[in-house]
Design a protein around this nucleic acid. Sequence first.
DNA 1: AATCGTTCCTGATAGC
DNA 2: TGCTATCAGGAACGAT
Length: 268
Amino acid sequence: MPELPEVETMARDLHKRVRGRTVVGVTVHKPDVLRGATPRKLQRVLVGRRIVRVWRRAKLAVIDFDSGARVAVQPRFTGSFVVERSGRGADQYCTLHLALDDGRRLHYRDVRRLGTFQLFTPKEFEAYVSKLGPEPLEAGFTGDWLYELLQRSIRPVKPLIMDQHRLAGVGNIYASEALWRAKIDPSRSARTVSRKEAELLRDAIVSVLGESIELRGTTIRDYAEGAFADKLDAYNRAGEPCRRCGTRIVLTHAIDGRATYFCPRCQR
DNA sequence: AATCGTTCCTGATAGC
DNA sequence: TGCTATCAGGAACGAT
C-alpha cells in the first residue's frame, strides 16, 4: 500500500522514464478510475502535450505537462505505473494508458481500482493541494509545529498523524513505525503528547520515511517494490518480540477500525 | 469546525 | 473440490 516513500519511488522512476516524451494518444479501458475528466476530455487535453516532470505531493504522483495541465495519480492500494513497448507487459488490470511519441505506452494499472487518475487545471490543482497538510520531509515540519498540531485535537494520535489534511504522506504503516520509534502509545489522545514526545515523534517520522525511501519503500501485500519490509519494527509483526524489550507486538483494530501494531510495554 | 460512519473494489483467504 | 463469506484499506462524502 503506497504511502509517501512508495509514491516517491514510483514518481522518481517514472520521471526518469518518461520526462520529455509527448503524448500521442489516450486509451481508457476502465473509466471509473478517472476523476475530473471523461475519456474524451482526457484525450483532448493531453494529446500533443509533453511531459515535463513527474513528482510527488503527499501520496499523489503528479505528472506535469507543458500546457500547465496536471494529472494526479492516487495509487491507494493497488495502483502502479507500467511503461512498455506496445503489446507486451500490459494485462487486464491496466485501466488506461498514454501512448508516447517513442512508441512506448505509459499505463496506469490498478487491480482493485480504488486508486484514481485525476486531471487538473493549474488552478484546480492549487486549490486541491492547498488543503493538504505540510510535507514531513520539508523544512516546516518541526517538533514545535507538530506539538501545536497535537495540542489542538483530542483524537488518538495515530489517526491524527495519518490525516492528510494535517500532515501529508503518512499512512498506516509509517504511523505505526514512527509511534514505535517514539515510544508513544497510538491510542493516546493527541493533546496528551508532551513537547518532548512531539520532538521525538517528529524525528521518528522523518527518519522512518527517509530510510524507507532509500530502500525504495516497503513491500507488503499489494506494493511490490522496495526492501524496507525487513526493517519494520512494529507493522506486520503481531506476536513477534519487540526489538527493544522482547514483549510480543500486539495487533489491535480498536483505533478507527484500522490495523495498529504496537508494543504494549515500551509504548506509553 | 471537528469528527464519525459509509462507500468504493476485487484478490486472497478461511470456513464448510 | 468447489462454493460462499469475510477481509483489507485511503479518502471523499454526507451526517451529526
